[in-house]
Amino acid sequence: MTQSTPDSKVVRWGFIGAAQIARKNWKAVRMSGNGVVAAVASRDAARAEAFIHDCSMEVPPVVIGKDGEATLARPVAFGDYQALLDRDDVDAVYVALPTAVRKQWVIAAAKAGKHVLCEKPMAVHADDAEEMIAACRDNGVEFMDGVMFDHSARLPSVKEVFADAQRFGKMRRIQTHFSFCADDSFESGNIRASAELEPHGCLGDLGWYCIRFSLGAANDELPIAVSGRAVSVYDDGSVPSEFQGELKFKNDLTAGFFCSFRCVNQQTATVTGDRGYLTIDDFVLPFVDAESKWQLHSHELQVDNCRWNFGRHTTYGAVAEHASGEADSQEVRMIRSFGDAILNGKSNDRARDIAIKTQRVLDGLRRSDAENGKWITL
């Protein structure tokens, strides 16, 4: 059970870091129905003020009173992270800092009694991640990493397909691809190409989602071994700009992925059974729509002497769910779910467990790459 439960009826959020993704989560807090942004801290107060100003122009931060009236509640800006953590009117923090400094501030937040939603990858090494989780557990606060698709209404429906012995059969292979083509300024101007700030490069930024999807499809089981190679790196030779990985699970299930800062936008997942295979074209960030979709295929080859007919047999599935910025979208579900755990004092053990497993797989892949793709036992 969580020990730190706020006195208020909503979770009062503090944002640590003003990264671009934090703007999306600003709106998610507003749409969640159980949270409000109370404070924002950045490298300096002016940067935090600018973030609050820009976000407020599009999504004014409000608190809904018991009478149903909305009251404007402008967050306080800080140029010091610890000053935000020292406030009594902050219940939870969203940590959107570079990976290299997340450990320090997640542990500081836990010691301050703040629940922690942390951007991914959660740490540089699995040992660091274990320390972060231990600090949260020891201080009675919740921890979750910011994988939005984990909270999509699509995933439970897709898992029902995986369990369908007639249409899907036994799961044999998981394959994911997540990429975008960075511009010419990316290597010199973006922290995701920085060995000092984001040492895992595309593997941490994009591969984390591929690993997480594979673990989820495999019922959260940890692979027994992994192998990975950086296909290309940035000039310092240590930050992957393209990475490919392989995961071996028990029962002969395998998974593979490719992630890249050099290929066109693609977010595809294919899960193959011995009777059918399921495809998702947008497994990380759903296409703009009011539905999240997938396809199930069971194509059939018929051979009759000189005639070879490969018949298409595809069915389409969907759940009602907006892609972004609505009460039912996956990032809002993430914030709401985290808030519910805090407000109801119910610990989310799965959130901690799956984050650690993802980090352990990432660590194994980096070790494998350093040893020329050697299989690493986890």
Rank of each mutant, 00 (worst) to 15 (best):
G345T: 07
S292W: 02
S185W: 07
L343I: 12
V158Q: 02
V264H: 11
W26D: 00
G35I: 00
N348W: 15
K120L: 08
V95F: 10
T377Q: 13
Q82I: 13
E326P: 02
K250D: 15
E49K: 02
A165L: 08
V63D: 07
A290P: 08
A38K: 06
I335M: 09
A77R: 00
V288G: 13
R360V: 08
D274N: 08
E291M: 11
A217F: 04
N348R: 15
D184C: 12
S260D: 00
A100L: 10
R47E: 10
P75L: 10
A269H: 00
K293D: 05
V264M: 10
E371T: 14
A327G: 12
I342Q: 01
A193E: 12
D91Y: 00
G273N: 04
A45H: 02
T272F: 07
V37I: 02
A182T: 07
A217N: 03
L278A: 06
F310P: 08
V141D: 08
D184V: 14
D289I: 05
K250M: 11
A28H: 02
M171P: 05
F162I: 06
A341E: 13
Q267L: 02
W13P: 00
H313C: 07
E326G: 09
I107Q: 05
R154N: 00
A269W: 03
L343M: 08
A18Y: 09
